[in-house]
Design a protein around this nucleic acid. Structure first.
Lengths: 182, 182
DNA sequence: ACGAAAATGGTACTTAAGTATGAATGTATC
DNA sequence: GATACATTCATACTTAAGTACCATTTTCGT
């Protein structure tokens, strides 16, 4: 029984050494637990052999029951370690890292329909407005729509009135600002 | 020694029960390992007491050594579990999930300096051009820059020439297209 | 300091833009 | 069918835009 106490004390020392070792070596990921366990086991076994071999003959008969208990202790220690490994499941921690991605937003044009409806333009006025924003002259617009310049002038005049501006240049500026044209 | 074998078999059963329990209850995060360990310990102790109490008197003398060994086994099993907990650091498997966040790219205007230089505009012409793209009339531009309309007309005419267009409306359109104006 | 380019301004002119008004025709909506 | 609105076109006019040509002054690089 005296030897068993000694073995206990040695085990604690061996344990603390193994633990220190595993902490410092924690850089290499993965199998730390297993290799440390082996180191621990081998160290323990080595100590046991070392201690016992020195006084083997004196002990082998007198303290056979103590050795037996020691082996039982050793076995169940490993058994406990095995049990712990089964019980302690690997915790999976999911960390969601929000990563800002600057999407190359295509200079997509979304027509501001709210503002467009406020203007209360007729469909023909809308046609003319779009051609105006393309920098076209009255003559060109008339040509595009197969109309006379007189008609275009009328439409343009109405557009200016509805947009509350005084020139086609201001129409272009305001149409851009209100996002009713690309 | 016969009892020890029985105890072993019971342990296995108890273990498997505990493991199943811990798996199903894995929803609640944290202390699963510990509570399961306690459940396991209590179950084992309970079984031990139950089995032994039934034949206590018959056994207490004959098999005192077996009980002693059983206790040793129990203790070192827990010791092994404790050791394993020290050695096996809780592996936290970190899964980094990148979540795309679409940053609302402000409709930022980047001046197309390459195209701008090609135009070979003078600084004053550039001033006038910017005011043109704001939809301002020659009179307004003259007023803004403290110049006569004659000067503005000269600048505008030069701008039209350099941009190879025929009206201020086309200037606005082309300036937008070349991204030399917001 | 000199020359080239830039900046400013003027006059005269042409052309396009924009206004005002009216009218004919088409098209829904009740 | 009457009404309201949209569409088309025309005439006459005013105003702004744009051109052409010239002149003066300022700025800047070598």
């Amino acid at each position: 029984m005296a030897y068993f106490s000694g073995l206990w004390a040695k085990n604690i020392n061996a344990l603390s050494w193994v633990k220190t070792n595993s902490t410092t070596a924690s850089g290499q990921s993965g199998q730390i637990g297993f290799s440390s366990l082996w180191a621990y086991g081998i160290t323990m076994a080595g100590l046991l052999l070392l201690l016992k071999w020195l006084e083997w003959r004196f002990v082998i008969i007198d303290h056979s029951i103590a050795i037996y208990i020691g082996l039982i202790a050793l076995f169940f220690t490993f058994f406990g370690i095995w049990v712990a490994k089964q019980l302690l499941e690997v915790k999976t921690q999911t960390i969601v890292v929000e990563k800002e991605i600057y999407v190359p937003v295509t200079p997509e044009f979304v027509l501001n329909e709210i503002e467009l409806k406020k203007l209360n333009l007729t469909s023909r006025e809308w046609d003319v407005l779009q051609l105006i924003t393309q920098g076209k002259s009255n003559t060109e617009i008339a040509s595009d729509l197969y109309l006379s310049t007189s008609t275009i002038k009328t439409h343009v005049s109405n557009i200016l009135s509805k947009l509350e501006v005084k020139s086609r240049a201001q129409v272009m500026e305001k149409a851009k600002r209100l996002k009713i044209t690309p």
